[in-house]
Design a protein around this nucleic acid. Sequence first.
DNA 1: TATGAATGAGTCTTCATTCAT
DNA 2: AATGAATGAAGACTCATTCAT
Lengths: 219, 219, 219, 219
Amino acid sequence: MPRPPGHGPGYEIKRQEIIDQAAELFARQGYAATGIAEIGQVAGLAKGALYYYIGSKENLLVEIQDRVLRPLLAAARRIAALDEEPVLRLRLLSQTLLELILARLDHIWVYEHDYRHLRGANRARLLRQRREFEKIVQDLLIAAMDSGAFRKLDPRLAMLQFLNMHNHTYQWAKPDGDWDAEFLSREYCATLISGFRSPTYDADDLEDRVTAYRTRTTR
Amino acid sequence: MPRPPGHGPGYEIKRQEIIDQAAELFARQGYAATGIAEIGQVAGLAKGALYYYIGSKENLLVEIQDRVLRPLLAAARRIAALDEEPVLRLRLLSQTLLELILARLDHIWVYEHDYRHLRGANRARLLRQRREFEKIVQDLLIAAMDSGAFRKLDPRLAMLQFLNMHNHTYQWAKPDGDWDAEFLSREYCATLISGFRSPTYDADDLEDRVTAYRTRTTR
Amino acid sequence: MPRPPGHGPGYEIKRQEIIDQAAELFARQGYAATGIAEIGQVAGLAKGALYYYIGSKENLLVEIQDRVLRPLLAAARRIAALDEEPVLRLRLLSQTLLELILARLDHIWVYEHDYRHLRGANRARLLRQRREFEKIVQDLLIAAMDSGAFRKLDPRLAMLQFLNMHNHTYQWAKPDGDWDAEFLSREYCATLISGFRSPTYDADDLEDRVTAYRTRTTR
Amino acid sequence: MPRPPGHGPGYEIKRQEIIDQAAELFARQGYAATGIAEIGQVAGLAKGALYYYIGSKENLLVEIQDRVLRPLLAAARRIAALDEEPVLRLRLLSQTLLELILARLDHIWVYEHDYRHLRGANRARLLRQRREFEKIVQDLLIAAMDSGAFRKLDPRLAMLQFLNMHNHTYQWAKPDGDWDAEFLSREYCATLISGFRSPTYDADDLEDRVTAYRTRTTR
DNA sequence: TATGAATGAGTCTTCATTCAT
DNA sequence: AATGAATGAAGACTCATTCAT
């Protein structure tokens, strides 16, 4: 994401605005089917000025992917490092993931659909980050098995079930849908955990523990 | 899908071949990012001859969507109409769905990603069929609730969980992956049913009943 | 207009049918904007068979031009050679010309609009024939001046006025219009002759002389 | 004729130049037979830049039609509204019409030949304007009849004779022909008026009255 | 006689990008 | 900081024509 040197104070603000607008267009029409001219029109900028801000069309895609992956990975790393029971951490991660999906539906569309249009280094970095996120989830699942909370499952398959359930949400969620991230997370986790748990594990008080955790940390 | 009248015997065969090849390209690169020239090259046909077979690029997309939706809907209708317990029918539908996904991974990519590039009547028909499929699943879930097998759930949310779990599979499945449709269906359903079931419902013998059903019907 | 050797009895009939149909299409849409495929469709023939009959698209144009010019020139030569007063001959020629225009409106459209798409020898021949027709008209006008019926006019300008008046008719005439060729010829000639005539020439009995001529020759 | 917003000062000039060049090509070869590539070549512009100016091929056709119809209708409306004798107004309109034809021969070719390639709203507007012009002529002819100058004629047929005579001129006129609009108008009107006039109407001083009118108004 | 299949140049149009100003 | 003008390759699609069968 090379930026021309020496910018005024409004540069970055305008730039972020343009990325917002591009994300919306890409989500609605697809990256390949959206023209630079269209973005310029929505941004109220002639093509020359547009390029002054964006550098290239692929750059926009990179930025949008980044806007998804950077906070996602940061949150995932933070949650995974918490000194809490693995199942609780999974539940927290679930909600964070859903919050991000619901908050930025258009970004997620682009993230899920158009990463294949990235080339070279951009693509490699993206895939690396995706794999890191998957590993965090999988490691949490393994930890839950090791702790006796979950049965012995194929960890990769468990991780994929977890991600299937969460990641596909963008396909039908609406910006102002009936269900918020907390509710969905509770429902999804209820299903998944009842499927994964070992017979001895009692999941009934999980939500209480979530509440307790939140009280503890936001105070 | 209007075709010019009067074609030789080899026409339809060649046509289906081209659709195969197009599906592979669309899956890899996206519909919008795949050029007609590229398809012609892969098909070994000049542009003129290519159009003799395909009519238009959008036509290819329609055919691919149809190849997914026609068998899917047919199977779903058939299974829904079976005189079997709802949970068993869900399990059968799950496997059929996964069989279709795994057998035609590229078609599913296109189906999931590029339906938005359909216009007008083609798009309307597609959405109608998608909704019909969703309704079949949802009605099965309602039947399972009515039979006492499942708890009282929000039927739409249950349906979406079911489809999240299954439909997202195309994102990571490989043509020669380790897991076949039967295995995945067993695992997915185990998770979902343990999440959905009422306390009194015993799901442990479901797989036996699946086996029994298969024996009964294939004899 | 090369024709493949050795044809069955139906060949020429079918061929003429195709030219008819092509003329209609060319008239409605223009030569350049009408496709061979369209002609084939209207003729109920696949492209291969079509070419068996027509040889080439330009050939169709040549034939249509011929269908206009051959009878037109034949009639013009015949009328010009009549042993009748020049003004009467002009009146007869006028009617013949209008009969041809009204009888074959589509051919005339093509004749007037698309002769420029002819190339080389075809074009040269066409222009030669057009000039011959113009010369016949002009010579009749000169004869009328020499006979004292018409004033001394610029013969070329008189000829052009005559042709302006007649040839532009195709632009607004309808296949089943209110006015037939005889009526239009009477009206056009009344206007033209009253403009061209010398003060001493009495045009009032022209129509009687036309009737007399017709009675004489059709008996 | 929508144009992209925001253009520099040279834009419209260049645009008009391109329309000029296109009109010449269309006139020589026909609209359908002239390629965008050819226009670009003549304009010295690559295809992209060409489209920056023209928007679409049909747009060029619309502009050319407009260049004919706008001044024609404006002049016709102005002349029709003059407080002069109807026959004089017809004579003035005739000359204006011929001036326009001779001044823009190529535009008139396109106007007469290719209006059928317009579609939808463009076509409707064109036909409406053509009919308005025809109505103006016809109303003048009716006024001349009402004033006693002309015999009782079929007004529509009289109008068509008037337009036949004038409009067909483009078919043979040359850019630097021997005859100017004033001369042709005098000749055409002499013919038409002598054909249309009532026995009592004296047309001999019409040209004097034209001269008088011109002197009066240009002073 | 007639067909279906093929071609490849050609159709109009849009693309992402650049750059002098 | 921003613009208008330009490019040329690529976009989907149609064309008249050929030819083995």
